[in-house]
Design a protein around this nucleic acid. Structure first.
Lengths: 211, 211
DNA sequence: TCGAATTAGTACGATATCGTACAGATCAAA
DNA sequence: TTTGATCTGTACGATATCGTACTAATTCGA
């Protein structure tokens, strides 16, 4: 990673639009990147969630130079930036290619499980899962998350997030106030969540054991 | 494809279980393969849908020999079967590898859009979309689909499928009776569907223009 | 041709979420 | 410390779907 540049992003930074050429690949450290679906009525929902276990550039890894989706920084923080040309030449190295291919598989699996989860589980379970995932990347820090923001990730109304979040707080699983949120009972939140959290986590462990 | 064997599958055939070694890759002709999520309570929902535009073996394409998901034949029919060893050696050919990499990207995109659709759109829209997708592969033939079956694909109750299907039939968009279903008004069904149908279709056209 | 099995229609109370709106709480900047 | 902006609590009727159950229609095999 000698040729990487450390960059810092604010939340909501859009990395690129659909159809743009990929000029760099990002390996998040503390930042978190989302792939979002946006619909005609302005509603949004998250399709994929890239944290420090993974990276962007899946299409580039598979030989395609232009972007198929919009990537947006969801949680501000740092990421390592690798220019596309350097990334592509690194792919010629056996080990690097192996890791990247594993990353693609992990992301695909995550997207599958999350998509099924969207259809099968309710807002409470999905919110719990999302918070657990973020908590794993936050190193004990509080997280800057508003209900409004979470509603865009989960594809539900803000009022629904508020209702469910209040419930979880009532039960002592999380705390929050004005855009700051923290997990206070990981185990309990896991119970409030669905099996999808564990499934994704163990798939990452299997595919990327050294991450 | 000289080394392919033409095989015929009944619906509901399970191709393999999680953790099994991939011994063959399938290129559906008339068959359709699903990747299913199954939950503790026995409920299921489709995570990916592989028809003749694509193939199985994504993990193998990316260097992993064991399966991460359960693949099941959802619509009986024919498929070309290519032994894993032969598939892997074909991947050394530039063109074949390019096509397979594009297929992986197309499937990933489809999974993303479908997953978001699960969270954002209602049963009527999702059923319409599913039927349109199947219709595209059925060459004008009727399709063997029961409401019960569709409920497992969409992750909703059978009664919900019946209600929505009756609506669509009322409007002249589809016909059905005892496990046989047909699309009678493609354009109308497209209106009943969500934008996700077109998004997936155009992504396949972009990534696999010759398919 | 009849009976069993499969498939579909439908009902109904319960629940989740929508869609919208407004008020109260908290924070940040002047 | 005030003020405006942001964030959260909450209400309420509407709608979608659940969960379940029972009945009716159709098909297929004996």
């Amino acid at each position: 990673m000698e040729q990487c540049e450390l960059v810092e992003f604010d939340a909501r930074t859009v990395l690129h639009q659909v159809g743009e050429k990929t000029n760099a690949v990002y390996f998040p450290e503390s930042a978190v990147i989302s792939v979002l679906a946006t619909y005609g009525d302005g509603s949004t929902i998250e399709m994929a969630n890239i944290g420090r276990e993974a990276c962007t550039g899946i299409n580039l890894t598979l030989g395609r130079e232009t972007q198929l989706t919009v990537n947006e920084i969801q949680v501000g923080g740092t990421a390592l930036k690798l220019p596309a040309a350097r990334f592509v030449s690194l792919l010629e190295e056996e080990y690097f290619r192996h890791v990247l291919f594993s990353t693609v598989q992990a992301v695909l699996f995550q997207v599958m499980v999350s998509g099924a989860c969207n259809g099968a589980h309710d807002a409470r379970q999905r919110l719990s899962r999302w918070l657990l995932t973020m908590h794993d990347r936050a190193d004990g820090q509080h997280m800057n998350l508003t209900h409004e923001f979470l509603s865009h990730m989960l594809g539900v109304r803000r009022a629904t997030v508020s209702k469910v979040a209040a419930e979880l707080r009532e039960e002592g699983l999380i705390t929050y106030s004005h855009g700051r949120m923290a997990v206070t009972d990981h185990k309990g939140l896991r119970k409030a969540s669905c099996e999808c959290y564990d499934r994704v986590r163990s798939a990452y462990d299997t595919l990327l054991p050294n991450a």
